[in-house]
Design a protein around this nucleic acid. Structure first.
Length: 259
DNA sequence: GGTCTAATAT
DNA sequence: TATATTAGAC
C-alpha cells in the first residue's frame, strides 16, 4: 500500500475538482471589480455544470444580472457533492493534520478549494468520523453499501490506530494549490478565502515540478494576513517537523484575497 | 463571538 | 442516504 506514496501527489494535481463541480452557480461570487483587480476576467469560459450536478433553481432571474452580485452571497448554495476526488483531498488534509487536530476550519484551509465552506467540511467530517468508528470497531469486515465514497479513498493506517504516530509519518502530502489557483475561473473565487499552503515533502526530488513551483513562488512577496495566522502557525509547526527530520522544507503561503 | 460537534432537518 | 442546518457547549 506504500507504493501509493510515490505517486499520490501526481494524482493530487490531476484530480483537483473543478470549481463548477463545487459551485454550479451561474452567479458570480465576486464583484466585477474584484475580478478585474485580480486580472481574472475571462469573458467566455466553459459551458455548464458537470453532469450529475443539479443546476440550482435560479429563483426569479428578472434581468438583474449586474445587481445579482449582492444576492450571490446570500443566495442559497446548491448542495455540495463530495466526489471521490474531493474526498481524497479531504482525507489528505485530515491525514496531515492528524486526526486530533483535524477540525473543520483547518481542514477547509488546507484543502484550499474555492467555494468550499466550513459547514461543508464539518458535515462531511461528522460523517467521516462515524465511518472511521465503524471501521475500527467492526474491523475491516463488510463495507456498508453507503461507504463507497469513503472506501474510494484509502484510510491512512494511523486513523484507525490511535497508538500509531498521527502525523509526520513518511506519508507526507504535497499541497500544490498553485495549480488550483491558476486553473480556477475567476467567477468562482469567493470574496473571502483563502490562504493556500505549499508543503514539500523532504523525500521529493528537487527536480520535481511541485518543488519548482514552490521555489518560484517563494521569490514572490508573501504576505501573511491576520486571518491566515492560524494556518501559518500550523504550517510552521509542520515544516519544523520536517526540517528536524531531514532535508529542505519549502513553505509558502499565498493569501489570494483581501477582504 | 467564533468554532466545534452532535443532533436534527431536508 | 447525503448533505445542510441547528443548538448547545467550549
Amino acid at each position: 500500500m506504500r507504493e501509493e506514496d510515490s505517486t499520490w501527489f501526481a494524482k493530487w494535481e490531476e484530480e483537483l475538482p473543478s470549481p463548477e463541480e463545487l459551485i454550479p452557480l451561474s452567479q458570480s461570487l465576486i464583484t466585477p471589480d474584484l475580478a478585474i483587480a485580480f486580472d481574472l476576467r475571462s469573458p467566455n469560459h466553459r459551458n455548464n455544470a458537470s453532469p450529475g450536478q443539479t443546476t440550482p433553481p435560479q429563483a426569479n432571474s428578472s434581468a438583474a444580472d449586474s445587481a445579482g452580485d449582492e444576492q450571490a452571497r446570500t443566495l442559497k448554495r446548491p448542495r455540495l457533492v463530495w466526489t471521490p476526488q474531493l474526498h481524497k483531498r479531504f482525507v489528505d488534509a485530515v491525514a496531515h493534520l492528524g486526526i486530533k487536530n483535524a477540525v473543520p476550519k483547518t481542514i477547509m484551509q488546507l484543502m484550499s478549494v474555492d467555494g468550499l465552506t466550513r459547514e461543508n467540511v464539518a458535515s462531511h467530517l461528522q460523517k467521516y468520523r462515524l465511518y472511521l468508528n465503524r471501521m475500527q470497531s467492526g474491523g475491516g469486515g463488510n463495507v456498508g453499501v453507503s461507504d463507497h465514497l469513503f472506501s474510494s479513498s484509502p484510510v491512512p493506517a494511523h486513523f484507525l490506530h490511535p497508538t500509531a504516530r498521527q502525523s509526520s509519518d513518511h506519508f507526507i502530502p504535497s499541497f500544490v494549490p498553485m495549480a488550483t489557483l491558476q486553473q480556477q475561473p475567476p467567477q468562482f473565487i469567493p470574496h473571502r478565502q483563502i490562504a493556500a499552503a505549499n508543503f514539500i515533502s523532504p523525500t521529493m526530488k528537487a527536480t520535481d515540478q511541485s518543488l519548482f513551483l514552490a521555489r518560484q513562488s517563494q521569490q514572490q512577496q508573501v504576505l501573511i494576513r491576520p486571518s491566515s495566522l492560524h494556518l501559518h502557525s500550523q504550517v510552521a509547526n509542520y515544516a519544523g517537523d520536517l526540517e528536524s527530520g531531514s532535508k529542505t522544507t519549502v513553505l509558502t503561503l499565498f493569501p489570494t484575497r483581501d477582504d
